[in-house]
Structures are given as C-alpha cells and as structure tokens.
Amino acid sequence: MKIEDIAKLAGVSKAAVSLALNGKPGIGAETRERILQIARESGYMPKSKSSETGPQKSLVFLAFTNSGIVLEEYYRQPFFRELIQHTEERCRSKGFSLLFRSVNMESFEQEIELVASEHRESGVILLGTNLSRPEIESISRKLPHLVVLDTSFETLPVHFVQINNGMGAYQAGSSLCRMGHTEIGYVASSVRINNFNDRRRGFETALAENGMSLAEKDVFTCSPTVLTSQPSLADQFAAYRKRQGRLPGALFCECDYIAISAIKTLTELGVRIPEEISVIGFDNISEAVIVSPELTTIHVEKERMAQLAVDLLVQTLEDPSLARVKTLVDTTYVERQSCRPPEVRTALNVNH
C-alpha cells in the first residue's frame, strides 16, 4: 500500500494524505480521521527514519489559509492541488521530502513565530497567492531560506516564482479581439489579490491596443472559489440584460473557477455558450476539460513553476549568498469549445 493508494481510497490528494500521516494542520478533522482509518486498515507503515541511509532531507511547503482565496483545505482546490503535486515530484527528484505546514491567517503573527521556531534553518516554499507585501516581508525576516510561489513584489529582496499574469490576460483579450468581438465583459473576483490586479491590467492593455476599453458597466463580480452557479452573478447578468438589452458577446474571467461558475450560471439562465456568449478562463485546471463546453483558457505552466521554485530553494540552501531573483513564467492560450467569433454566434441566433 502506497500513499497514492490511500489517497485514491480516501478520495483526496496525496498532499492531504501526507498532512494526515505527518500530523500537520491543513485538513479537516473528519478528513484526517478517514485517511488514518484507511491507513490503519491497510496496514500502511511509513518508512522509519532509522531505515534511512542518512539523515532525512526535507523542504517545507507553507500556506496561510482562510483568507478568501486560499481555503483551509487548499490542497483540494484544483490550481493548488496541481502545483503541490508538481512540487512534491520535483522534491523527490532532488532527494528531498516535502513537509506541509498551513497556518490560519487569523493568527498570523503568533503562527509565523511558531513556524520560525521550528523551521528557521529549513528551506521553505511559501504559497504567496493571498499574501501582501508587508506580510511576505515579515515572513522573510523570520525564514531566511525562502522562495515565494505564485506572487511577486519587485522591491522585496526575496526569491519569487510567479505567473506572467499580465501576459496571460493580454493573450485572452487579444484573442477575443482577433475573433472580432467588440462587446466584451469582464468577470472579476470579489476577493482581490496581486495576480488578479495584474490580469486586469494585461486585459485592458489588449483592449486598448485594439481601440477599445473596459467600461465599469461591463464588469461583473463573483466568488473565486465556487465551481457551481452563483445566484449573485445570475442577478448581475439578468440586470445587465434588462438594462442593455443583451449580454456582452464575450466574457474574460479572472480564473477558471470563475469561468466555470459563469458558464453554469449562464446555462441556468438559458444562455447558450458559445453560440450566444463566449467565455475565457485563466489557469487551465484539470476541470477545464470536464465542464461543457470545454473551457478556452490561459495555460499556466504549474509544473515549470514548481521545478523553478524547488531548484532555486536547493541552490539557496547550498549558497545563502545567492542573489535574489524574480522569475516570471510565461503563459499560453488554449483554445477549446467555449469561444467562437461573433459572426458565427449572430448567425446561429438568427435561427434560434
């Protein structure tokens, strides 16, 4: 019995199994007990340290949860799940195990002191998605061997590995313009983070280059962590259609979660996708090909980001004087079935 087998039986990720077996926070009590029960019943025995040929080398994956975007069970959120999986794989290839540590944002100061007392000399990959510049600065003072993943602040002397968010949203906006869309809406997250702000700037740049701009009346908002339809978003769509006479011909959504939720919400309103409205997401999570129609999106190189973060951290442990770097990982546009040119949409509407 392997960790992968336990994860499959429990219906959770390998990261969740690792958290449960190592007694680490970050999963609910019911989930933890289910994992441990399966492990006991299967006779799973983790490899003891005494059986190792040398001291166990490990890196720490640190996340601050319950902040509106990174939930307590963040390892089950598709984007983070894939990022963690690739990080674990890269650690193993480098001869390291990966320990998970998650702390609640509500007790930030106390928790970071505790983490620092336990891991000050450890190499730490910090999930920075939901963190501000002052928060990362505070963490970096207490954890000197640090690489921050999924955000970046250029004035901090810290290693960052970040998505080229502006480029990805620019690709999305440019693609819609090339298709011929001129009535374009924007679905924003109700929780604001650095990544989303960069995406909006990149998208607006693409529109400006094509002689257009994003009006506030064309901006909708919704939760970024819900994969089902959202009543508040349905109300916004209905009010827009009543006010304008029709919905925009296309929507760019700040992440795939939002895009999938928008598709489900629009479908419940009787709007056909892409015949009546095109939808583009961002992240290319695995669920993007499960939703119907399959989601056109911006692919984020999550495996490449994980590799860069682990490699940079290992180099920093070997040479702490290594100059700090900020790495942007470019994105690619992935065309699927949720988008089409407006002339096709209009032609189909004539027969509808």
Rank of each mutant, 00 (worst) to 15 (best):
D235G: 09
D235P: 00
F237R: 08
A238F: 04
A239R: 02
Y240G: 09
R241H: 04
R241V: 05
K242L: 15
R243Y: 00
R243K: 07
R243F: 00
R243S: 05
G245M: 06
G245P: 04
L247G: 11
P248E: 01
G249D: 13
G249S: 15
A250D: 03
A250H: 05
F252L: 00
C253S: 02
D256Y: 02
D256L: 02
Y257K: 00
Y257E: 10
Y257M: 10
I258H: 03
I258K: 04
A259L: 11
A259C: 08
A259N: 12
S261Y: 06
S261G: 10
I263K: 05
K264N: 11
K264R: 15
T265M: 02
T265A: 00
L266N: 06
T267N: 05
T267V: 01
E268D: 11
G270D: 04
G270E: 01
R272Y: 09
R272D: 14
I273M: 10
E276L: 01
E276G: 04
I277P: 00
S278H: 13
S278W: 15
V279F: 11
G281Y: 04
F282L: 06
F282M: 04
N284H: 09
N284G: 09
N284V: 03
I285F: 05
A288L: 08
V289W: 02
V289L: 11
V291M: 08
V291Y: 03
V291K: 02
S292T: 14
E294F: 09
T296C: 13
T297I: 11
H299D: 12
H299Y: 14
E301L: 09
K302T: 06
E303Y: 07
E303K: 08
R304T: 12
A306R: 09
Q307C: 05
Q307I: 06
L308D: 02
L308R: 12
A309N: 03
A309M: 02
A309V: 02
V310R: 10
L312V: 04
L312R: 15
L313H: 08
L313G: 04
L313T: 03
L313N: 08
T316C: 11
E318R: 10
E318C: 07
E318Q: 12
E318N: 06
D319W: 01
S321N: 11
S321Y: 06
A323S: 15
A323Q: 15
V325R: 15
K326D: 13
T327R: 13
L328C: 06
L328D: 07
V329D: 02
D330R: 12
D330C: 00
Y333T: 14
Y333E: 13
Y333R: 15
V334W: 01
R336G: 07
Q337H: 15
S338L: 01
R340G: 11
R340H: 05
R340P: 01
P342D: 10
P342R: 03
E343Q: 08
E343N: 10
T346L: 15
T346H: 14
A347M: 07
L348C: 06
L348S: 08
N349E: 13
V350S: 13
H352P: 05
